[in-house]
Amino acid sequence: MKKLCIVFKQPPHGTAHGREGLDFSLLSASFEQEVSLLFTNEAVLTLLKDQDPESIGAKDYIATLGALPLYDIDTVLVCSESMQELGLSEQELRIGVTLSAPEEIASHLNAVDEVIVF
């Protein structure tokens, strides 16, 4: 089974990167690849609770994060430094994640077969 890590770096709204990355993640997992997700930089904002993207004319693709367990996507890493820079706590996030230091992230990326950045 191929191990794939999808890295999200862009903020959740304003571009299609987040939606496309999430769609790609679910599609890859449905083809029995072991998929993990990594949120870093402003992409961490994607995980915040109580967002209303429709109020700015964007689609609510973020609700799809709730489907990750159905696709056996259990590894969701979030850069602890990005969280700190944005002044966020783990309690503000809508799904369970693993806060990871840059060294842990590097180790994870070295352990997968392919890394795709959105």
Rank of each mutant, 00 (worst) to 15 (best):
A63D: 06
Y71D: 07
E114F: 13
F8T: 05
T75V: 11
P53D: 08
D23A: 14
I73W: 01
E104T: 13
F31Y: 14
E42T: 11
S28K: 12
Y71G: 08
L93S: 07
L37S: 12
V7F: 02
T40L: 14
G96Y: 13
E90A: 11
Y61V: 06
L109G: 05
T98E: 15
P12L: 00
D23T: 10
V112L: 04
G18M: 06
F118G: 01
S100I: 08
N110H: 12
I95P: 15
E81L: 14
V7I: 10
I56L: 02
Q51M: 11
S80C: 01
P69E: 08
I73M: 02
V97G: 12
Q84E: 12
E104L: 11
T98A: 15
V117W: 02
E34T: 14
E85K: 12
H17D: 07
H108I: 11
C5N: 12
S89R: 10
L68N: 01
D52N: 13
V117M: 06
Q10P: 03
N41H: 07
E20N: 12
G66A: 11
F24N: 05
E85G: 02
S28G: 07
A29Y: 12
V117H: 05
L4R: 04
Q10W: 05
D60I: 03
K2D: 07
E54C: 03
L27C: 14
L86Y: 00
E114N: 12
L65Y: 11
L70V: 01
F39R: 02
T46K: 03
E90N: 05
V115P: 07
R94F: 08
E32P: 04
L38P: 09
V78Q: 02
V97H: 06
E85M: 15
L93V: 13
E103Y: 12
Y61Q: 01
D23E: 11
C79H: 05
L77W: 03
A106G: 10
L109A: 03
E114P: 05
L4G: 00
S82M: 09
L70D: 09
Y71W: 01
V97F: 10
G87Y: 08
L4M: 09
S36V: 15
S25L: 11
M1Q: 13
P11G: 04
K9P: 03
F8A: 02
R94P: 10
Y71S: 04
S107G: 13
G14H: 00
G57M: 06
I116L: 15
I56D: 00
S36F: 11
P69M: 10
S36M: 14
L26P: 10
D74Y: 09
E114V: 09
E92L: 03
D60W: 01
Y71V: 07
Q51A: 08
F118Q: 00
D23P: 09
V97I: 15
R94L: 13
T40M: 14
I95Y: 15
A29W: 05
L48M: 15
G87Q: 12
E90D: 07
A29I: 07
V7L: 08
F39N: 04
A101Q: 15
L45W: 10
T98Y: 15
E103V: 15
R94I: 04
E20H: 05
L48W: 02
T40R: 01
A58I: 00
E92W: 08
H13R: 00
K59D: 14
V115G: 10
E92Y: 02
E54P: 04
M83S: 03
L77R: 07
L48N: 06
I105S: 02
I73Q: 00
I62S: 04
Q33F: 09
G21M: 04
E104D: 09
Y71C: 05
